[in-house]
Design a protein around this nucleic acid. Structure first.
Length: 553
RNA sequence: UGGGUUAUAGUGUAAAGGUAGCACACCAGAUUUUGAUUCUGUUCGUCUAGGUUCGAAUCCUAGUAACCCAACCA
């Protein structure tokens, strides 16, 4: 029953490289910039890079691309490491582009000496202006032809801190008329008198991405440097640097980043949601960040499965959020402990059940027998779900209604005799008769019912806060809509139920536990929870055929 | 208007000249002490127009569309 899975285009390249003996083994890297938290799009890149290392008996480095001290911080470094470990991957080495600042500086000197780089005194605006446009060639800077000695001197003075931010830059000398804008004398080094999270105040000049990334790959002997599509134009410059410097030739390959429905993936936008208070933080369960998914109750396995299913290719993609949810349910369905919780309570009184009596019933913890059983208290007064009763039964209604019978999960069959309504027209109580010989597992009543509902014994029920999450955006693609993406935020993305009734066994719930509140969804403890104030997050709903039925009508 | 990249069911992703397959979603049904799970089935696709070939998603020609590139961000 082995299912042969076809290779993605990067695996094909690797297998060919290995076959031809171009490399004995492969080395990949995951290169985040520590200026934000990792999101589900990063998970795709992580699974790809680390997965390749694992699949081909190679290795993968974690390298922080920390060349811009202004936006970077150790808070992000720590969160990124935590998230990668949580996803289940181990890096061979933890490196930083800042580890290579000396080497990079040396490379710059080398380029100057070879006549391939020069110091430019122009302002940012002037440089941009002379750069031309995609359809219009650029013009050379008046400083382009400085002598090698002068460039050397000036660059050293830059490093020594003799100039203010922006006063000078080091540029590559390539071709101001190049069709690739990036090749029009790109900036290699800029002056930033800023404190770096690792090198402190040692440097006041910092290399640009294009002068750091490829060389860092090269220094580490990365064989396959995998990045997203928008870096395609950079490859020419990547290769140019490696060639002019005569260093180890790493190669860059590009794949399409992940896009997903009902969310945004850009770090800039996520940062905005955090800073402007639309969410409680980077790890808000509505965020597409890995820390958000973790808090919401997603498992690393489900995210890895998702990354496996979406594939790797070069074309733009827009993945349905439901695929992620499918992967989640796929796993949780097998693992989650089944328990009962009533979120929107309605009192059910069993008229013919003895007063002041509690019965211990046995219920299975999950579909797999190995998950065992537990006992549940059952008594005369129960809480059931408001939505499980209908005053006038709809078509195909299997639940409670006047005269209707249902099975109380793991307990008895009851029949509704009457109900009580308050002045506002809200149903407050329903009265039933139970059939003593219909006890679950020992049913001799001969009755058959179509519906089974969950319940909690009122006397023994615990209370808990329950947080119900929905998608953060109401538009399938918030980026495509008119106006600001934030205008499309779903106003009902979080619904807090301050007092839900839950079965007593939940008192001992642990953070790592995964539950299915029967018929209501998958839930887990929130990090804010405490034994005296339990808080549960809804990880995902269950598929709901009845909800669909209603929609149709 | 220059350069680059990509086009296969609704969404993804396979098929390396030889039966267009798989997953999710959708729809219909069976089972069910969760209207869950599980199982079965239906519908739906090669960007367009030409050409080569016994045979084209695949090769050729010409179009078209989408995305990326003019940060001292990565």
């Amino acid at each position: 029953m082995s299912e042969e899975k076809s290779l993605n285009f990067i695996e094909e390249i690797i297998e060919q490289d290995l076959q031809e003996g171009k490399y004995q083994s492969i080395l990949t890297r995951f290169p985040p910039e520590p200026n934000g938290y990792l999101h589900i799009g990063h998970a795709k890149a992580i699974c790809l890079n680390f997965g390749l290392g694992l699949k081909y008996a190679g290795k993968t480095n974690l390298r922080f691309d920390d060349t811009n001290p202004v936006t970077e911080d150790t808070e992000y470094v720590d969160s990124i490491k935590e998230d990668i470990r949580w996803l289940g991957f181990n890096w061979a080495n933890e490196f930083y582009a800042s580890d290579y600042f000396d080497a990079l500086y040396g490379y710059a000197i080398d380029l100057i000496k070879k006549g391939f780089a020069y110091v430019d005194d122009l302002t940012a605006e002037e440089i941009a202006h002379l750069k031309g446009s995609p359809t219009e060639a650029g013009k050379p800077s008046p400083f382009r032809d400085r002598s090698i000695d002068e460039n050397l001197q000036l660059f050293e003075a830059m490093k020594a801190g003799q100039y203010k931010d922006g006063a000078k830059v080091l540029r590559a000398k390539i071709d101001m008329a190049h069709t690739n804008m990036l090749m029009r004398d790109p900036i290699l080094y800029r002056i930033k008198h800023a404190h770096h999270h690792r090198t402190g105040d040692t440097w006041c000049i910092y290399p640009m991405y294009d002068f750091a990334h490829g060389q860092s790959d090269s220094i580490e002997n990365i064989t396959h440097s995998i990045c997203t599509l928008e870096f395609i134009p950079h490859r020419e410059l990547y290769d140019w640097c490696i060639e002019k410097l005569g260093i180890f030739p790493s190669h860059q390959y590009e794949f399409a980043r992940l896009n997903m429905t009902y969310t945004v993936m850009s770090k800039r936008k996520l940062l905005q949601l955090v800073n402007d208070g639309y969410v409680s933080g980077w790890n808000d369960p509505r965020m597409p960040t890995l820390s958000g998914f973790r808090r919401k109750g997603y498992t690393p396995e489900s995210i890895r499965l998702f990354c496996d299913k979406i594939g790797v290719a070069k074309r733009e993609n827009f993945i349905d959020l439901s695929l992620l949810e499918f992967c989640l349910r796929e796993e949780l369905n097998k693992k989650a402990l089944r328990v009962m919780a009533v979120l929107d309570p309605l009192k059910l009184i069993i008229s013919n059940y003895p007063d002041n009596t509690t019965e211990e019933l046995i219920s299975e913890n999950g579909p797999d027998e190995s998950m065992g059983t537990r006992t549940l208290p059952f008594s005369k007064e129960l809480w059931i779900e408001q939505e499980d009763f209908m005053e006038e039964a709809a078509k195909k209604w299997f639940r409670l209604a006047p005269g209707a019978m249902v099975r109380l999960k793991s307990a008895y069959i009851v029949q509704c005799d009457e109900f009580v309504k308050n002045e506002e027209g809200k149903i407050t109580e329903i009265h039933c008769t139970y059939f003593p010989n219909s006890k679950s597992g020992n049913d001799t009543s001969g009755l058959t019912v179509k519906g089974t509902i969950h319940w909690v014994s009122a006397a023994q029920a615990l209370t808990a806060e329950v947080r119900l999450y929905d998608r953060l955006f109401r538009a399938e693609n918030p980026n495509n809509e008119e106006g600001d993406f934030k205008d499309n935020i779903n106003p009902n993305s979080l619904q807090i139920i301050p007092k839900a009734y839950i079965e007593p066994s939940l008192q001992n719930a642990q953070l790592a536990d995964r539950f299915q509140f029967i018929r209501k969804g998958y839930f887990c403890l929130d990090t804010d929870s405490s034994p005296s104030h339990l808080i549960f997050n809804r990880t995902a709903t269950l598929k709901d055929a009845w909800a669909k039925e209603i929609k149709k009508a």
